[in-house]
Simulated scan of single mutants.
Amino acid sequence: MAEKQSTSRVAVITGASSGIGAATARALAAQGYRIALLARRLDRIEALAAELDNGSIAVQADVTDRDALVAAAARVQEELGGADVLMNNAGTMLLGPFSSERREDYRAMIEANLLGAITATEVFLEQLRDGGGDLVNISSVAGRTARATNGVYAATKWGINGWSESLRQELLPDVRVTLIEPGVVDTDLASHITDDATREAVQKGYDAATVTPAEVAEIIAFVLARPRHLVINEVLLRPADQLG
């Protein structure tokens, strides 16, 4: 079994193939972390691991597949010595009018956004507790404010928020828990929406987004760099011109 290098922490990032996940991998690597890049799109995370060139690894895993996460955790333990940080970032935003026609979208969001984070945390928790770790859950402004057409997405994010607060109380002092709630960020999240009219409307906001994934990643890196006696439990951030 590999031993953890004293000068290098290990971060596991789900949904690491693009957006906030990939940006955070770059930010943490710059601080000396080795990264376990978890995502479904293997070609992207392999390219990112090669770019980082610091012993980081690419692990193809879908957060809705517990067996894949268990295998990923075993590989992280064997090759990197275990995880110090787990960032639950994987998710999807399938907005649209509520109807039976979109029931598969609802299931997909619940399984990825909420159950995926819960399962990843359950699988990696023992590693996080070994020496004191950090759990970073990526939520959303939608975890505070629901709107028409985002009901199930908001439900998953409200769920993440409540679950994170429970874990915060339960896991101290072994694991610090931080909830990150971004507003609109310049990512490809809106492109996943299956309802055409909703996708076109939402995409306009994302096309005009002024907050970049790198700016969110900088905040996450700052949070993780605080001394162990200090916990930044919650960060809500929006573009300056976003009202809701």
Rank of each mutant, 00 (worst) to 15 (best):
R75G: 03
R75A: 11
V76F: 05
Q77C: 08
Q77G: 11
L80S: 04
G81R: 00
G82F: 05
G82K: 04
N89E: 10
T92N: 08
M93K: 08
M93T: 09
L94V: 07
S99G: 14
S100L: 15
S100A: 15
R102H: 14
R102L: 13
R102P: 04
R102W: 12
R103I: 14
R103M: 14
E104C: 08
R107V: 14
R107L: 15
I110A: 08
N113Y: 04
L114M: 12
L114S: 05
L115C: 08
G116P: 02
A117R: 00
A117S: 15
A117C: 12
I118R: 00
T119V: 14
T119R: 03
A120H: 01
T121H: 03
T121D: 09
E122K: 11
F124W: 08
F124S: 04
Q127F: 06
L128E: 05
L128D: 04
G132V: 13
G132S: 13
G133V: 06
G133C: 09
G133W: 04
G133A: 09
L135Q: 02
L135T: 04
V136S: 02
N137W: 01
I138V: 15
S139M: 05
S140L: 01
V141A: 11
A142P: 03
G143A: 10
G143T: 05
T145V: 15
A146D: 00
R147Q: 14
A148Q: 13
A148K: 15
A148P: 11
N150R: 07
G151V: 09
G151Y: 02
Y153N: 02
Y153G: 02
A154F: 01
T156V: 06
K157Q: 08
K157I: 02
I160W: 01
I160E: 02
N161G: 10
G162L: 10
G162K: 04
E165T: 10
E165P: 06
R168K: 13
R168V: 07
R168Q: 12
Q169E: 13
Q169N: 13
Q169D: 12
P173Q: 12
